[in-house]
Every structure is written in C-alpha cells, then in structure tokens.
Design a protein around this nucleic acid. Structure first.
Lengths: 195, 195
DNA sequence: GCACACTGTTGCAGTCTGTGCAATGTTTGC
DNA sequence: GCAAACATTGCACAGACTGCAACAGTGTGC
C-alpha cells in the first residue's frame, strides 16, 4: 500500500484543522477567526493551513463528499421517475461509509446560525456537486432544457442539505431516514408549485 | 429636493465603477483584475471603490434590484396559486423602470462564462432576495414548512436569473417576455419532478 | 453672501488573506 | 539504504479590506 498511511494522515490533518476552526469559531465568533489562529490551534504552520483549505470558510465546512460523474452516470439513461433517481443518487452521496459526523455537522450549524452572512457557504460547498448533477441531468433531459437541469440540480442538492441538517439536529434518527426526508421535501415543493 | 442630485451621482459612480470592472475583466480576465485597477479605470480612489462595493465580485454584478418585504407582503395572504404569485412578484422586481441594461447583462455573462469559478456569484447576488422571499413564503406556508419555503425561494430566484439571462442573450425580446420564460421554467421543473 | 451641517472623497496606516518559491524533513518503492 | 516523491515550513510579497481623520463639494437657513 503506497499512499495508505499518507492518505490517512492527510485526512487526519484535514480533520484536525476543521475541528480547530470550528472550536475557535464557536468560542470567538467567525469575525474574530483568523487563519493564523486556526493553524496554531491545529498545530500546523499557517502555510500548511492553505495546503489543505483554500480559505477559512472551506476549513469550517471540511471536505464535502464529492459526487463522481462516472459512478453517477446511470441516471442519464434511467427509465425510473426522476424523483426516485434523484433521491437514490443523492442519498448515495452521504450514506456510503460513516461520512456523516453528527456532532461535527451540529457544530457547523451552530457556527452558521451565529453568522447569517455565512449562509451562502453551504450552497457554495455543494456547488461542485450541483454542477456535476446539472451536467448529468442535461444529458438526461436533452439539449433543450439546460436551465431546467440546473434548477432541478440546485433544488435537489438544496433539499439534501436541508435533509442532512434535520437529521443532524435530531437525536437518534438513523441515517437511512435522510432518504425519506429528502423525498418528502422534493414532493412537497412539487405539490406546492403544481397546485 | 436635497438628495436628488446626490442620489443621481451615487448611481452614476456606482455604474462607472461597475463598467470599469467589466471592461477590465473582459480585457484581462478576472484573475488579473485588481481593485486598484478598477478604481483607476473608474477615476476614483481605491478607498472610494470600497465605499461602493464590498469587493470586486460585487462590483462586477452591480447593485442588484432589492425586493422590499413590505411591498411584497401581499403574497403571504394571497389565495391565488403559488406559481402565479411567484411569477408576479419576481417579474415585478426586474420590470419596474429601465432596470435591465441588456448590454451590461451580456458583459456580466461573458465574464462569468470566462471564469467558471465565479458561478456562485449570481447566486450570492440574489441571496438577499432569496432570503426575503423565503421569509414571506414561510409565513404563507405555515410554521411546519420552513425548508420547503427556502427551497422554493431558491428555485424561483434561480429561475428568474435564468429567465433574465435568456432574455439578455436574445436580440429583441421585450422585457415583458421574462414573465413567460420564468413561468415556463417553473412549470417545466414541476412537470419533470412530479412525473 | 455667509456660516453651517451633511455627505462624499481621499490618503494613510495597518491587518488579514492567499501564493510562489526554495529549503528541509519524511515516506515510499526498490 | 538510496533515490524519488511528497509534505511541511519559513519567507517575502501582492492584494483585499477597514478605521480614521482630514478635506472638499452641496444644499440650507439666515
């Protein structure tokens, strides 16, 4: 195994930095948070901080699960209802392995709630996934609906983040329930708009 | 009128700065764009630049039309279908006065197209409106659907920005057609998801 | 006209963010 | 072990952004 140890270390350091950032943000607020302080708290040099995260916002959120276009391309030619496919694809994103760390997500939420100006952060973090999904949906829906593809992609990832948020604030909801929350949300939006 | 001349000047300067930013961005790319260069091109001091825009991204987009919660609160108690109300409210945002400057919007698009990393910009610019709309929708939909309200608000403002984009890239589409584009988009999303 | 308040512009000094580079360690494959 | 690959770090520096205080232009009341 070549990069196994290195890989684990990288993950560990990335996680250390994120936790340091969250701890400091909760203690002193986002305004007073500096990259230097985060680096010190995490026990790395300021320069190293930027080897892991592009900025302190990214450090707070950590590395988001990335949707892999090749793994997800089945959705292009599926015959199942779009809603079902979206739910399956997106829950796959957050269900594989123990990706979801409830206390960490709660800390993130606390920080975001305390600083409303950070609201766009969540969106930006999911932006990458939204783009991938939008590309796939464009293929599925055909050339004439690029806008619809992007809108649905944004709506779906937004619904996922709400579902994850709700899951994180509940005390003992199993991760499998995220699927249900996500579906309910999308259906509700549909119903409200179609009425 | 005391503040009339001043107000006009402020608008003029804000517009000068935006145009300077767009010109430079198109000429040299967003990467090479500095606030100092924008200020120089616009004929103001670097310090003044920040009196008008919080950062260079904001300068590129200009002051977006702001939704006024008090003016828009009729939507809370309306009995009309939600879709109709959304279309009316949002088109009202962009239709009053000659707010929409087609060549300017096209320049913005060119810049955004040239720098994909700026994609989140549009979203962030509309963030304020999304929040206002989300608040209103939360009142309309009741306490038990905060997530749905936010999702619909995001979807609707996203659809509006697509509609405006399409309008801007067409050569002689009247602004009134934005309403049609917006409605079509939202309906299409609905249809695709409900199926 | 003149003094006055109001508002906007500017320069300056300073903090924080973020990057390129080169030196120094550490891991890995062989 | 040794060499290649990779990670960490310090340093120097450019750019973003802010607070403050001085200054200039405009409108107001007299």
């Amino acid at each position: 195994m070549s990069s196994d140890l290195r890989e684990r270390r990288r993950r560990q350091t990335a996680d250390d930095i994120q936790r340091a950032a969250l701890r400091l943000a909760l203690r002193c607020g986002f305004e007073a948070l500096t990259t230097e302080a985060i680096a010190a708290e995490a026990g790395v040099s300021p320069r190293t901080f930027f080897n892991y995260y592009a900025n302190k916002q990214a450090a707070l959120l950590g590395r988001p699960p990335r949707m892999d276009a090749d793994e997800a391309c089945w959705i292009v030619h599926s015959d199942a209802p779009l809603l079902d496919d979206l739910v399956a694809l997106l829950t796959g994103l957050v269900e594989d392995g123990a990706r979801l760390d409830r206390p960490k997500i709660r800390m993130v939420r606390q920080v975001l709630d305390a600083s409303p100006e950070l609201e766009p952060l969540f969106h930006d973090m999911l932006e990458g996934n939204t783009r991938v999904l939008a590309g796939l949906l464009q293929q599925r829906l055909g050339m004439d609906a690029p806008a619809e593809a992007e809108l649905i992609a944004g709506l779906a990832t937004g619904a996922l983040s709400h579902a994850v948020r709700d899951w994180a604030s509940a005390d003992d909801l199993p991760a499998a329930e995220i699927k249900v929350l996500l579906r309910r949300r999308l259906q509700a939006v549909c119903r409200l708009l179609c009425a």
